[in-house]
Amino acid sequence: MSETHDAGQQVDGFEPRIVAFFCNWCTYLAADLAGTSRMKYAPNARVIRVMCSGRVDPQFVMEALAQGADGVLIGGCHPGDCHYQSGNYKALRRYHLLRRMLTDLGVEEKRIRLEWISAAEADKLRDVMNEMVAEIRALGPAHLEVPDESFEELEEVTV
């Protein structure tokens, strides 16, 4: 169930599942602030806390997608503000190539998102959440599971 509705969405009951990796010092605190401010946003994301966006291993993103996530959100501090000085720059560099590589593997760009959200930007967090859920709802499920294959009915031709 979503807290916002965009007009013109396909109403087929699909609710995106989003895994979010938030850095402890900025984005996680922004989410806390959104809570203490009683802001409301779509409940589709599940937050996994890391100390820095630089900890986010591309393998985490891929494992999340492989396990059925429809989107992955990475939240870190603004450039220049990283609590550990430069971890977010490494996250940024990885994100650029990872996103391109994932599009080559059929994962739409909009499913992987990196956002700089400082501890004071609870409203940005709310907006990003709502926006991302709406966008992925429009894209539909990621459908990255590898279909089982069997050849029960042999294809045949008779002359």
Binding site: V61, M62, E63, K90, L92, H96, L98
Partner: peptide, 27 residues
């Protein structure tokens, strides 16, 4: 778990750029 993902993590960490435009250009 994923060789390509780890290699991506390693070499992008070495990319000599901090802004999106230069990062894209190098990548």
């Amino acid at each position: 778990r994923d060789q390509g993902g780890k290699y991506l993590a390693a070499i992008t960490s070495l990319v000599d750029a901090d802004d999106p435009e230069t990062i894209e250009r190098i990548l």
